Simulated assay, not measured.
Amino acid sequence: MLRKGLIILLLLVLAEVSLLIYIGRLIGPLSTFLLLIISALFGLWTVKRQGLSILQEIRFDLNNRVMPGAALLDGLCLVFGGFLLAVPGFLTDIAGLLILIPRVRSRAVGWISAWIKDRISRGSLTFFTSYRRKR
């Protein structure tokens, strides 16, 4: 599992560097750099704007004594999309922008929820905490 993850990460880095070189040759290095900066700023702005509404939804659920499962997963996807936009590279920018689209993010939340429910029902999901019991 770890080996597959490292191979995928290495392939992603190689693809990102190749794409950066290719686009840098097409539009120039300064334009490429500015495009990466603009995408990172757009991602941060979008995360801030959409994140506030998700925080309000979480507060509403907590005030009504409801576990905010979908809202928490939505927020997690939003933060992950913003992180992908902050990482330099066009492939990660595309993935980050897709995750920031509410319809795509709601589908991702549905897939993640189904995956978690499946793992819980099979008994193959383990949670680790740093909580220590008092004796």
Rank of each mutant, 00 (worst) to 15 (best):
residue 50 Q to W: 01
residue 9 L to S: 13
residue 57 E to K: 15
residue 21 I to A: 12
residue 46 T to P: 00
residue 13 V to C: 12
residue 12 L to Q: 08
residue 32 T to H: 06
residue 58 I to W: 01
residue 18 S to Q: 08
residue 38 I to W: 04
residue 21 I to P: 00
residue 26 L to P: 00
residue 29 P to G: 14
residue 42 F to H: 06
residue 32 T to P: 00
residue 38 I to V: 15
residue 55 L to N: 11
residue 15 A to D: 07
residue 31 S to T: 09
residue 15 A to W: 07
residue 11 L to R: 10
residue 23 I to F: 03
residue 57 E to Q: 15
residue 34 L to I: 07
residue 12 L to A: 13
residue 13 V to M: 14
residue 9 L to Y: 01
residue 31 S to Q: 13
residue 32 T to K: 02
residue 58 I to M: 12
residue 24 G to A: 08
residue 54 I to A: 10
residue 10 L to E: 02
residue 38 I to D: 02
residue 17 V to F: 12
residue 10 L to A: 15
residue 46 T to M: 11
residue 45 W to C: 05
residue 15 A to Q: 09
residue 30 L to V: 15
residue 43 G to L: 10
residue 56 Q to S: 14
residue 35 L to T: 11
residue 29 P to S: 14
residue 48 K to V: 09
residue 47 V to G: 01
residue 34 L to C: 04
residue 31 S to I: 06
residue 11 L to H: 00
residue 53 S to V: 05
residue 39 S to G: 02
residue 48 K to D: 04
residue 35 L to V: 04
residue 10 L to W: 03
residue 19 L to K: 10
residue 11 L to S: 10
residue 30 L to Q: 07
residue 59 R to E: 13
residue 29 P to Y: 13
residue 21 I to D: 05
residue 17 V to Q: 13
residue 45 W to M: 05
residue 17 V to E: 14
residue 18 S to I: 07
residue 41 L to P: 00
residue 56 Q to H: 14
residue 28 G to F: 05
residue 33 F to P: 01
residue 10 L to N: 06
residue 52 L to D: 02
residue 40 A to W: 13
residue 44 L to T: 04
residue 49 R to P: 00
residue 32 T to N: 07
residue 48 K to S: 10
residue 11 L to E: 08
residue 28 G to M: 09
residue 46 T to W: 05
